[in-house]
Design a protein around this nucleic acid. Structure first.
Length: 217
DNA sequence: CGGCTGATCGTG
DNA sequence: ACGATCAGCCGA
């Protein structure tokens, strides 16, 4: 039995709304910074091979279009890979990073404006989701030390995708209408609960590497 | 907790 | 070649 209490760092017991409604197009049709902050506390839902998994979103990053040196779309790089970032708000963008992990984003704004939010961390929204996340993480690395999962269940973009079985199969999905991949209402988050910092892993982005476009609870 | 390193492969 | 990363290992 894991010492799971430490995972609920800031999440008050019973504070998760059992049955939140799905976020509509208007939620995502805003700028990438607003959407990144607003997604904190919301619940990412995915139908996996083990059943439904729900994760409370607790860390996000904004990628702000063709002027952002940290973004895949910097200088108007519209390719087959980055195409989903150009689609309407609510579209998923899942790509392979470092040859072995997936990263998941949700496009913001409207068609043609490639702003997006990287989802970096979730915490299981219920015990059933926790059990499924642990199983999915364990299954990924057979020889892995089980201790290494612990409180690191989904605390990074790659780990989050493994824990919620998000792969490139889930790329370019409209999360406003998909029956199996979407976001719902969740915790009530007050502005003063939102922390901000520099984005991770984009040291090459010059001045943009210092923008405080990472948000977390 | 912080820093370092190898692993691994689709994309342009 | 190059990463919007991770796990394991090291030292403090």
């Amino acid at each position: 039995m894991a010492k799971s209490s430490t995972d609920y760092h800031y999440i008050r017991q019973s504070s998760v709304t059992a049955c939140g409604s799905r976020l509509p197009r208007e939620f995502f049709a805003r700028d990438g910074i607003t959407v990144a902050k607003e997604l904190l506390g919301k619940i990412l839902v995915h139908e996996t091979s083990l059943g439904t998994v729900r994760g409370i979103i607790t860390e996000t990053e904004s990628y702000m279009g063709e002027e952002d040196k940290g973004s895949h779309t910097y200088s108007g790089k519209r390719t087959e890979r980055t195409e989903p970032m150009y689609h309407q708000g609510g579209t998923s963008y899942v790509y392979l990073i470092y040859g072995m992990y997936s990263c998941m984003n949700i496009a913001a704004m409207t068609e043609g404006i490639p702003q997006a939010v990287l989802l970096r961390k979730v915490e299981p929204a219920d015990e059933e989701s926790r059990a499924r996340m642990e199983q999915l993480r364990r299954a990924k690395k057979p020889g892995q030390n089980p201790e290494s999962i612990g409180r690191h269940l989904a605390d990074g973009p790659g780990k989050m995708c493994i824990a919620m079985e998000i792969t490139r199969q889930d790329n370019d999905i409209d999360m406003v209408t998909s029956p199996s991949f979407y976001v719902t209402e969740g915790l009530t988050v007050l502005p003063e609960q939102i922390r901000e910092g520099k984005r991770i892993g984009i040291d090459y982005a010059e001045e943009a590497a210092d923008y405080l476009w990472r948000f977390y609870l």
